[in-house]
Computed example of a mutant assay.
Amino acid sequence: MSQKRILLIAPTGQVGWELLRCAQPLGTVIPVSRVTNAYGHVDLSNADSVRRIIQQIKPDIILNAAAYTAVDKAEEETELAFQVNGTAPAIMAEEAKKLNALLVHYSTDYVFDGESASPYTEEDKVNPMGAYGKTKLAGEEGIEAIGGEYLILRTAWVYGIRGKNFLLTMQRLANERDELRIVSDQIGAPTWSYMISQATVQVLSQLYSPQMSKDRAQYSGIYHLTSGGQTSWYEFAKAIIAREEKQPNVIPIPTAEYPTPAKRPAYSVLSNQKLQQTFGITVPEWDKTLELCLDAQQER
């Protein structure tokens, strides 16, 4: 593929930080965040700011790794969450369409209610329970309504070796406490941010290959992108702590014993079959990717 001009929004988050490194072979990656750099800055709560940065950079590809992710706080700051998660992505889609650019946007398992007993497909009915899920769904619907070339990649239970996430929290608490009480009745597939980035780059490489580039628009749509398999937060915590020097006692508890302002889906497993069938990409099982992540963390 020819070298592309790639606008990366939010390069310091878990996925954005990985994309900044993994996407380099695709072209010139231009990172933009709330902090002003050589390319300027973007305020995702301000529609004019979003339009201005895209019009200024004129990218071939927009990677939107930004999101309002404070699930509980979104119940209070719903308007801000809608601006960042709902309105901003739709504006990105509008500007991308004007430029014939491709928009890559990341969404979440929270668009579902968690009442399924089998992995959710892209065609399953959405029914978000809280403000965060509703704002993310608004972003998806806004992008779809605009059309153009876009990929909406739904992921879940994202963790990594940077930022704030379950992996780093468990490692910290393991060294601070002798006992950890972890929810055992929520099921999902922990997904390493590096794997999300790698899969994204693989998809883009295919879309801009001679075989797909002429018909690229037909691949627009929603795809699920998570690790394979499934587990609970309790089992995930145990797997993390197994590599720690200090071994606290990990006790399983029901969700009812860990109340939060926003209700969490009890079942968050997403089917990756569409991604596999379309692009031939399979993300390894969650426990395998966790081992790879912990190895990478140790090497650092």
Rank of each mutant, 00 (worst) to 15 (best):
M1E: 04
S2T: 08
S2D: 11
Q3T: 05
L8F: 03
I9R: 05
G16W: 07
W17Q: 05
Q24K: 15
V29R: 08
I30F: 11
P31Q: 06
V32F: 11
R34Q: 13
T36I: 13
Y39Q: 04
R51F: 01
Q55N: 11
A65L: 06
Y68A: 00
Q83N: 10
Q83S: 14
P89V: 09
E94P: 09
E95A: 10
V104Y: 01
T108P: 02
D109I: 07
D113F: 07
E115K: 15
Y120P: 05
T121E: 08
T121Q: 11
T121P: 02
V126A: 02
P128W: 12
P128H: 11
K136N: 00
L151K: 12
I161A: 06
F166T: 01
L167M: 01
L167T: 00
M170N: 02
M170C: 15
R172H: 14
N175C: 10
E176W: 14
E176Q: 15
R177N: 09
D178C: 05
D185K: 13
Y194V: 07
S205C: 07
P210Q: 02
S213V: 15
A217I: 14
S220I: 10
I222M: 10
F236A: 04
A237D: 03
V250D: 02
P254D: 04
K263S: 03
P265W: 12
A266L: 12
Y267W: 02
Q276V: 03
V283Y: 01
D287Y: 03
T289K: 03
A296N: 14
